[in-house]
Design a binder for these strands. Structure first.
Length: 396
RNA sequence: GCCGAGGUGACGGAGUGGUCAAUCGUAACAGACUGUAAAUCUGUCGCCCGUUCGGGCUACAUAGGUUCGAAUCCUAUCCUCGGCACCA
């Protein structure tokens, strides 16, 4: 119990407001807390970084707290046409449900929804009257809003700030009030908005509540893991891809991945840190990490296969046993460049030509020298273009 | 509505009459190297054709036009952004 609380309070935590030890007291008191985490209703894909607060939510649910998963469908329902940057189309209620279904399928790898209540904030936000909204806005100060770094920058430049943007923290704060929240979770980018909930709980209920902001996970290229950078490990990545992506991370972030991306116990992670510090080859540790991540998000069998595949194809440069096959007529005599296109190893003949000229194409382990070299297909002939793409030819 | 800026390849962003299939960065791909699918280095990065070297086609919001020649100039249209105005 104490261990679990300690884990919740330290692992991947960027900030606890008002203070870590206060939250610890609340969590240890035996009291059942109202806890929630909100997501954008447009979200459909989850990556390992998104999963950080989800893991925390799950652990809190396991401790028996009253945990709510909130779908922020209200802004998606009213649309946000003035804010073109974020491309928020108006979604119908059906689309929102559809989105959540895809989201949930992935989130279930981490969350046990039988322990977690799901709500939509349109349920209460759409019912607020203008009078109520005005009263709510009175409780916030514009100064706080514009003193944020990002807003300041936009004000200083000629970036435009829509008035409605001021209302987002207000809405989020009202969510928190409506759920009578004791603790709100979110990524550290949500800290400001989450604090609005504290503000309202204090003013309207005279109740102290907590905000726990989780850290970002570094992506496979060293920058913050993000949808738009293309450096994310997605929960739905196929096991072999996932394994490979983990292997591609910088050695320096191995411990971050253990901490933020797995459920490995903190003291075990300490031991791993020791091993790395003592000069153990990082690739070994990284392989263990990749194995754990794949096991947790898929299953152990998939992890065994992915590890095996990685060792064979990447480390030993062997050909995999189960490579894609294409059936060809024995009479098809094609030029090498054409063959690559028909096999789907290149999208155009120009590309095929380039690959051949770069020495990337092997037929039965033999280098193909020129693009117009004629290839006579044989049964079980293996055509390889680059390190990772191969096709086995089967004759009709 | 008015004024201003602008719409270029996956993205960011140069180019403002020929030397532009279009600088550069990122991403991607290939090769070398490596404990790794990392990093680094090198190369490639519209399509099609002929073995180097070239040739052709399609492209710089859309449609026309000027010109021997346009991503670059003109006209119209559509769209984006910012400011101002209007809002009975």
């Amino acid at each position: 119990m104490e261990d679990k609380i300690n884990d919740i309070l330290t692992r991947g935590v960027a900030n606890v407001i008002p203070a870590k030890n206060e939250l610890q007291k609340a969590l240890s008191s035996g009291q059942i807390l109202n806890i929630y985490l909100g997501i954008d209703a447009t979200a459909t894909k989850i990556h390992l970084g998104h999963a950080v607060p989800l893991r925390k939510l799950q652990k809190l649910a396991e401790l028996g707290h009253n945990v709510t998963f909130l779908i922020g469908d209200f802004t998606a329902l009213i649309g946000d046409t003035s804010d073109k940057d974020t491309e928020r189309p108006v979604l119908t209620a059906e689309e929102i449900e559809e989105n959540f279904k895809t989201y949930k399928k992935q989130a279930e790898k981490i969350l046990d929804f039988s322990k977690i209540k799901v709500v939509h904030n349109s349920e209460w936000l759409s019912k607020l009257t203008f009078k109520e909204i005005v009263e709510l806005t009175q409780k916030f100060s514009l100064g706080d809003f514009i003193s944020r770094e990002l807003i300041k920058k936009r004000l200083a430049g000629n970036g435009r700030i829509g008035l409605h943007e001021v209302l987002y923290p207000v809405m989020q704060g009202y969510d928190s009030y409506h759920l009578d929240t004791d603790l709100q979770l979110g990524g550290t980018d949500q800290t400001f908005n989450m604090q609005a909930g504290r503000t309202l709980q204090k003013i309207m209920r005279n109740k102290e509540s907590f905000v726990l902001a989780t850290s970002f996970l570094i992506g496979t290229d060293g920058r913050k893991m993000s949808k738009s950078w293309g450096n994310a490990i997605w929960l739905e990545d196929a096991p072999r891809d996932m394994f490979g992506k983990v292997m591609a991370i910088d050695d320096e972030v191995i411990i971050d991945y253990y901490t933020l991306g797995t459920n490995v116990k903190l003291d075990e992670i300490e031991a791993i840190k020791e091993r790395l510090a003592s000069g153990e080859n990082p690739i070994k540790v990284k392989k263990e990490l990749a194995f754990i991540i794949v096991s947790e998000l898929h299953d152990e069998k998939a992890a065994v296969d992915a590890k095996d595949y990685f060792e064979k194809t990447v480390q030993n440069k062997e050909l995999p046993e189960d490579m894609p096959t294409t059936t060809l007529d024995p009479d098809t005599h094609l030029e090498a460049s054409e063959l690559l296109v028909t096999l789907g190893l290149a999208t155009s003949r120009s590309e095929a030509k380039r690959l051949i000229e770069q020495g990337a194409v092997l037929v039965n382990e033999e280098l193909v020298g020129t693009p117009n070299q004629e290839i006579i297909p044989e049964d079980n002939m293996i055509v390889k273009a680059g390190k990772r793409n191969y096709v086995k030819i089967i004759l009709k």
